[in-house]
Design a protein around this nucleic acid. Structure first.
Lengths: 129, 129
DNA sequence: TTACACCATGGAGTAGACTCTAAGTCAAGG
DNA sequence: CCTTGACTTAGAGTCTACTCCATGGTGTAA
């Protein structure tokens, strides 16, 4: 799979894909004789995971640490789990904050609806009189 | 209320508070004869709103636009509501993504627990034999 | 009155995560 | 053969949102 296809599939720019590879988040991706990347199934799975974790706001350096632990094999299970647990807590906290903001937004939008209604009513009155 | 007190109350650094004021997100804050800020009740309410919207990842320039509309008064009700509705959608989408990431994290943590269990069991066996 | 923590300003610097540019290679179609 | 478009690299540049710094004023407690 070419970089363009991967880019389209996961909505990540080719620059971002190369950047992720450069910093060690994915790959190294195998290349054909003329140096062009060919993404394999396992690469795609890594990319999907990375994308998901990035959407969960996991910082890139933490993700890199995770990937490095992964490469070190079985003896890092505990550490890797620890990183994920930490991240889970962060995600839960963030969800809470977003829910709070959401409530507030709904409340304010509601207020605006009322104000707009009143404004329109008073305009109508003016028109009638 | 001094800037330090506000900073403590809302967990925003004094630098951030001055920065918010400089870019027009809050204030201008009134100052005493020697130039020291004195935050009033209305300032605090604005700050709390700003903090909440920032936690909802509303970009600063959008927030500034909102504040400017607010200052323009009643005729901008519709536009302001529109901004909030947009932001609400963004927040809802983000919550969805975080929930997805959360599920994935839980799933992976579960897998790690199983793997760790197995690892420990096999170590015990080794110890016994 | 001196020490201390706090306040002010303008402007420079930083972190994180990309994003863009320049300069060049390669394969396919006209 | 030439053009076109996608690919490569290294490295510079950008954006957002702060955060820090130098320099100097303020206020109050001992």
């Amino acid at each position: 799979m070419t970089i363009k296809e991967v880019s389209d599939k996961y909505q990540l720019s080719t620059d971002t894909l190369r950047y992720y590879e450069k910093v060690g988040l994915i790959g190294p991706i195998s290349k054909n004789k003329s140096g062009i990347r060919d993404y394999k199934e396992t690469d795609l799975r890594t990319i999907e995971f990375v994308k998901c974790m990035r959407q969960a706001n996991m910082p890139i350096d933490k993700l890199i640490r995770y990937m490095n632990l992964y490469k070190e094999g079985n003896k890092t299970l505990e550490d890797r789990k620890q990183l994920l647990v930490e991240q889970l807590h962060k995600v839960e906290k963030e969800i809470q904050e977003l829910e709070k903001a959401k409530e507030r937004l709904c409340y304010k939008i509601d207020l605006y609806d009322h104000q707009l209604l009143e404004k329109n009513l008073s305009m109508e009155k003016e028109t009638v009189l």
